[in-house]
């Protein structure tokens, strides 16, 4: 799907855990998430921590959309 959106001219950032999959399917902007069933908030951690993580990764994703890149890029998450 990512490729089709990008072909249509939209910058798109894929947030996902399986970076090798995203790389194989040809995503250009990739932001890692923490797992498959809960990409943006580990239920084993307090709600507050989940919220912080989600805000952080979503910001990185938005920043990724506004970042010029020359090649497939995995954006760093702290």
């Amino acid at each position: 799907m990512v490729k089709e959106f990008e072909k249509a001219g939209f910058p798109i950032v894929q947030m996902c855990n399986l970076i090798p999959v995203a790389k194989t399917v040809g995503s250009n902007r990739i932001v890692p998430t923490i797992s498959i069933p809960y990409p943006l908030g580990d239920p084993g951690t307090p709600k507050e921590e989940q919220w912080k993580l989600r805000m952080n990764r979503t910001k990185i994703a938005l920043d990724a959309l506004a970042t010029d890149i020359k090649e497939q890029t995995i954006f760093k998450v702290s």
């Binding site: 990512v2 910058p11 798109i12 894929q14 947030m15 855990n17 990409p39 938005l62 959309l65 506004a66």
Partner: peptide, 10 residues
């Protein structure tokens, strides 16, 4: 007129 997309994959 969407400018960019966030796609979350599992």
């Amino acid at each position: 007129n969407v400018d960019g997309i966030i796609m979350v994959s599992t």
